[in-house]
Design a protein around this nucleic acid. Sequence first.
DNA 1: TCAAATTAAATTGTATACAATCTAATTTCT
DNA 2: AGAAATTAGATTGTATACAATTTAATTTGA
Lengths: 142, 142
Amino acid sequence: MDKYDVLKLENKICFPLYACSKEIVKRYRPYLDVLDLTYTQYLALMVVWEKREVNVKELGEKLYLDSGTLTPVLKNLEAKGYVCRTRSTTDERVLNVKITDKGEALKDKALDVPQKVAGCVKLAPQEAVELYRLLHKILGNM
Amino acid sequence: MDKYDVLKLENKICFPLYACSKEIVKRYRPYLDVLDLTYTQYLALMVVWEKREVNVKELGEKLYLDSGTLTPVLKNLEAKGYVCRTRSTTDERVLNVKITDKGEALKDKALDVPQKVAGCVKLAPQEAVELYRLLHKILGNM
DNA sequence: TCAAATTAAATTGTATACAATCTAATTTCT
DNA sequence: AGAAATTAGATTGTATACAATTTAATTTGA
């Protein structure tokens, strides 16, 4: 044990988080490719599917993303016809993102994606629950 | 509970992993800014600091990154004078990345980064150990 | 009231990520 | 030996991420 051990990858929590996240996102790809969606587009759609209408600020808070990231993602989803973007009439600064019929139809095609990806995360059920709890504890504290 | 609940953010393990990873990486920024390093550059340097010399393939396996990502990162680190990149004499396909004196000097300046960032991950010690175990279990299975 | 401060998105610039492809070097196999 | 297959990096193209700045709209406060 020398003083440089703190600089080793194995001794960190951030690196496995980063690596795990990337590897699992990669597992989504084949299933999302079929739907012509990227993971970020899929994340954004999940929120719009649930709320039917949401503004960019709310979406950013849910997804931990800012408008610099979301603007092109949402323009892309609009170009594909899954959402429409309209300024709020009561506050022109606010952009509302609403699901379209085509976007609603996509929801049914996406239903089996979670289950298919879940197969590659081989944790016991109680381990998944614990991981979920720990991640949300970290997120809640920052 | 309807059939669309599987498409909610809260019901997934991947999204909190993705969000947690990004939020913690963000916490590195102020400390890495001082060293003129990005998180990815810092990750790469950690491996080079530990092994002194490593080729791109080995580095990619350690970091779960491919040459498409690593090539520009390593060129950047070379431009800053922290590493040098030289082709192996026994196999011209292989590119060796070696720490320089300047890179070695940077190691000491980076020593307190982990501790400073650790403060924002407010987990009990045994929770951090468990999180570490779960993440490596997932990584080991994929 | 109306200038100053704040806010929501968009834009700009830099740095990843990664799939797909390409190139050059090395191995394998007949 | 020499063609075919494999391998290591680099390149190309697309899509994030995010800090910093900008723009336009709204709210605050003297």
